[in-house]
């Protein structure tokens, strides 16, 4: 009884679902760790941003969506969303490595993953630039009278861009079924929230536009799942926008090239944040509730780590694009002027 009272959330999910959630988060973490490894090896280049520490947000929210029907769009920290939505992890990994088997045949890279079959709309590199585009995806749903919900993720840094406010205004003005999900990991690259936001409670910014807005805990996958289910349902039912600020934390640097985390936060702060690790938290909840033993969870860890290893090796076996492909897909129906 005492244990149940200590961890009441476990009761809301079946042991199978708990294991499923745990497995999804662990998979994302191993996938991202492998990406970091590949980056250090020089197999991934350019800019790359991992989701490590933020897994509960993506996993919990994705649970509330209708696969293949609802839409998701995000910025450049974009590996986790498609993986959760059913995209082929080999194609995601191969894209980060710039190979022909990637979703964009190596033309997008880590920041530009797209999988339209699963209704993942990317994968964008300009901070805030994808917010109006996500709003446009929701516009189409309304125009076509389809009850698709669009989740538009943005970071706390993006929340300051002008087009974000323009989008809030039009989404509210035109009753668009979109959820602006601010993933507040407390840092806009290397600038802490309190140095970039005049009011650090970013959810309040929806209120002047008449958008229902709230802040939730993004480090607890069960809580995110529950909140997301409620919010997604509300948007589908009411056909209006919603703003949710999801508080989480990234354990890695802004991008793989960010090796100077101590310029903006202390090791002590990182250690404290690790105590809130969403994967460790769910593990403790499951063990406490008797939904799994530590040995069960270790087995899952090993399986997912091995699965990622295979994905990496397959992706690494994929060839680089042929130079002749450089002109493909500039246009749907013609090539641009050719030659230097």
């Amino acid at each position: 009884m005492a244990k149940a009272a200590k961890a009441p959330k476990e009761l809301s999910e079946t042991p199978e679902k708990l294991i499923d959630l745990y497995r999804q988060m662990v998979f994302i973490r191993f996938f991202e760790k492998k990406c970091n490894f590949a980056y250090r090896q020089g197999k991934i280049g350019g800019y790359m941003h991992t989701y490590i520490g933020m897994e509960a947000t993506g996993v919990g929210f994705n649970e509330a969506l209708r696969p293949g029907w609802d839409n998701v769009i995000t910025a450049y920290r974009d590996h986790a969303q498609p993986l959760l939505m059913g995209s082929d992890p080999l194609k995601v990994m191969a894209e980060t490595m710039g190979r022909v088997d990637g979703y964009s045949n190596g033309k997008g890279g880590s920041m530009h993953i797209y999988d339209f079959e699963n209704r993942f709309f990317g994968g964008w590199g300009i901070v805030g630039g994808h917010i109006p585009i996500g709003t446009g995806v929701a516009f189409t749903a309304k125009y076509k009278k389809e009850d698709r919900v669009t989740v538009c993720y943005l970071g706390d840094g993006a929340a300051n861009q002008g087009v974000v406010f323009e989008s809030y205004n039009m989404a509210a003005l035109w009753d668009l079924p979109i959820i602006y999900a601010i993933e507040n990991n407390e840092f806009a690259m290397g600038t802490r929230l309190e140095y970039h936001a005049s009011d650090t409670e970013l959810y309040k910014r929806g209120i002047p536009f008449g958008i229902k807005s709230e802040r939730i805990d993004g480090m607890d996958v069960l809580q995110v799942k529950e909140d997301a289910a409620r919010i997604v349902e509300w948007v589908r039912e009411n056909q209006k926008p919603y703003l949710v600020e999801i508080m989480n934390y990234r354990y890695e640097g802004h991008g793989a090239a960010d090796n100077d985390r101590q310029l903006y936060r202390t090791k002590e702060e990182e250690e404290e944040a690790m105590l809130r690790d969403p994967i460790g938290r769910l593990a403790r909840q499951m063990v406490d509730a008797g939904a799994a033993t530590e040995a069960d969870l270790e087995k899952i860890d090993d399986e997912e780590e091995e699965r990622v290893e295979v994905i990496f090796e397959q992706a690494d076996a994929s060839p680089h694009p042929d130079p002749s492909e450089v002109y493909d897909h500039v246009y749907t129906d013609m090539t641009p002027e050719m030659g230097h």
Partner: peptide, 13 residues
Amino acid sequence: AGFTGIAIGSAMS
């Protein structure tokens, strides 16, 4: 900028 972006998103979908 905002409504051009909305148009782009709608065109993509």
